[in-house]
């Protein structure tokens, strides 16, 4: 437990899409939430319905409810409920008691079920409908989440939208294998958010008992003062925290090197870009390119 680090509880938003694809996201998301005694919200965002067919959809939902058939979104929430219940995150969880769809409370923008958590004062399951980025953005705006945890998407534009439009740190759970012992690989340079990324990595490493590797990549063989100082600061900080770590300096293309060093058993941690929004809109950013190319989990710290 690392609650001593915090004055305010950390808030995690864990986005799930289906039983088939979201198991790793929920596993690591809840592990982190538990470690940080965070307020966790598990969200399912139902795809938007073409407004031309809205009346037909409403009628169908009403008849389905009458027949006792849960909507696909409710099925996902039920699966998430069972999953975290079996993992011991719900107080007095009883697998024999059926999931009650009727207990979902309808709020202005979503439906929700508040659960008694074993590790914090707030654990919620919520269901929203609409464009995924728009809905996650609104959820983060409404409840001021610190981290949004989400599975990887094949859509290229998703990386840009997640980083630029959602006002929280983003943890993309790409090819996460719960059987593996992961370490953290922190990408360090002279950018504004690097220190924040290192601090966050330290907290995560302590919480999940991981080793930290500090990676600095220069395009040329000469490492500038900014890069060298940032690298040294990271090592000193981790030393001070008493966390096992090692420093790596490499020369080459930064994004390519990050990906190569990440391999299959490291969670990449990097600060978000502090460049102009306009530049990032048209040309992207290093975190965005890394997120698009990475084959493993990646945490972008804001």
């Amino acid at each position: 437990m690392v609650s001593k680090f915090y004055i305010n509880p950390v808030k995690f938003l864990i986005a799930v899409s289906s039983e088939q694809f979201s198991q790793p996201t929920l596993t690591i998301g809840m592990e982190l939430a538990n470690a940080f005694q965070a307020q966790a919200t598990i969200a399912y965002v139902e795809p938007p319905v073409a407004s031309l067919y809205a009346d037909g959809m409403n009628m169908t939902r009403e008849t389905m409810e009458k027949w006792g058939i849960p909507q696909p979104g409710v099925e996902v929430l039920e699966w998430a409920y069972r999953f975290i219940g079996e993992a011991g995150y719900i107080e007095n969880y009883d697998s024999e008691i059926p999931f009650q769809q009727s207990k979902l409370v309808t709020k202005a923008q979503h439906r929700e079920l508040v659960l008694p958590s074993t590790f914090s004062d707030k654990l919620r399951l919520i269901m929203r409908q609409g464009d995924i980025i728009r809905e996650l953005r609104h959820a983060v705006e409404e409840d001021a989440y610190d981290v949004t945890i989400i599975g990887a998407s094949a859509q290229r534009k998703m990386a840009h939208d997640l980083i630029e439009y959602i006002d929280s740190s983003i943890f993309v759970v790409n090819n996460f294998n719960a059987e593996l012992d992961y370490n953290l690989l922190v990408c360090v340079d002279d950018s504004e958010r690097t220190r924040q990324a290192i601090r966050t990595a330290a907290v995560v490493a302590e919480a999940l008992k991981m080793k930290v590797e500090v990676l600095t990549v220069s395009k040329t063989t000469r490492f500038g003062t900014g890069y060298s100082n940032a690298h040294q600061w990271a090592l000193d900080y981790l030393d001070h925290k008493g966390l096992p770590h090692r420093g790596i300096k490499r020369t080459g293309d930064p994004v390519e090197t990050f990906i190569n060093e990440q391999g299959t058993d490291k969670i990449l941690v990097m600060g978000s870009s502090s460049g102009s929004a306009l530049k990032k809109f048209f040309r992207g950013s290093k975190p965005q390119q890394t997120l698009e190319a990475s084959k493993g989990p990646i945490l972008i710290v804001k």
Binding site: F5, Y6, D146, V147, D167, S168, T200, A202, V301, K302
Partner: peptide, 9 residues
Amino acid sequence: MVTFKTRTH
């Protein structure tokens, strides 16, 4: 206090 996020200006 360590947070996961710096609120942007």
